[in-house]
């Protein structure tokens, strides 16, 4: 029996936003080339039908991550409508909050904006997702050169094994200038009755991350 067949935990949904394309699992929801990143994120916000005015006040990392979270968390599954303390969020990226840090530094000649300052930490994204979805469980944000799939699988498997965390939003959310990528996965102890469910392994993480069409083979 292969490792994948014996994996104790499951990826029940995944989403990717990059190159001005947005996928929920294998489904391409939006493909809009020839526009700026800010415009694409706004297009996606509108396409998802979100009515969340706070989104407009966020920095670009939080805007991007919140949209990706929306793709993997909605609609919520029956299995995962659980106690808020049973939901964890473990994310990573390469550029931390540098996109916003630069904006803040540019403002230092005058009076810098308090609303920009509060986003000069990458884990504020976790806070924004938590506020939006009511999560109160384990949280961590790692700064790594590349997507740390092995680290995430090991770390999150430990959380799930410990017994409090039942489900976890994990993945990568990175933005700097016009370059960005958000790839998130909804991981759980329970396998959902879904064609998209797959064992929580580094192989499956990488397959979704790097597949050009966003599909998982």
């Amino acid at each position: 029996m292969s490792m994948q067949e014996t994996a104790p935990f499951w990826i029940n949904a995944a989403a990717r936003i990059s190159g001005h394309r947005a996928y929920r699992n294998q489904e391409l929801l939006l493909d809009k080339q020839g526009i700026r990143t800010d415009e694409f994120l706004l297009e996606l916000y509108n396409r998802l039908g979100l009515e969340y005015p706070k989104w407009f006040k966020m920095d670009r990392l939080s805007k991007l991550g919140l949209l990706a979270a929306e793709l993997v968390l909605n609609p919520p599954s029956d299995h995962e409508l659980r106690n808020p303390f049973e939901w964890g969020i473990v994310l990573a990226n390469r550029h931390s909050s540098l996109d916003t840090d630069r904006k803040f530094v540019d403002q230092l000649a005058e009076i810098p904006s308090p609303a920009v300052f509060v986003y000069t930490l990458p884990n504020i994204l976790i806070g924004e997702i938590s506020i939006r979805h009511g999560f109160k469980g384990e949280q961590a944000f790692f700064i790594q050169e590349e997507f740390p799939a092995t680290l995430l699988v090991n770390y999150v498997s430990s959380l799930l094994e410990e017994g409090i965390t039942h489900s976890c939003l994990i993945g990568w959310a990175d933005i700097l200038g016009e370059s960005y990528n958000a790839t998130l996965y909804r991981v759980s102890r329970v396998r959902e009755d879904s064609v998209h469910s797959m064992p929580f392994t580094t192989t499956n993480i990488y397959q979704y991350l790097y597949h050009e069409q966003g599909a998982v083979s």
């Binding site: 005058e110 009076i111 904006s113 308090p114 609303a115 509060v118």
Partner: peptide
């Protein structure tokens, strides 16, 4: 509360 700080900045700038 962050908006309140922004209004103070607005008043000053």
């Amino acid at each position: 509360s962050i908006d309140a700080l922004e209004l103070i900045v607005l008043m000053q700038q």
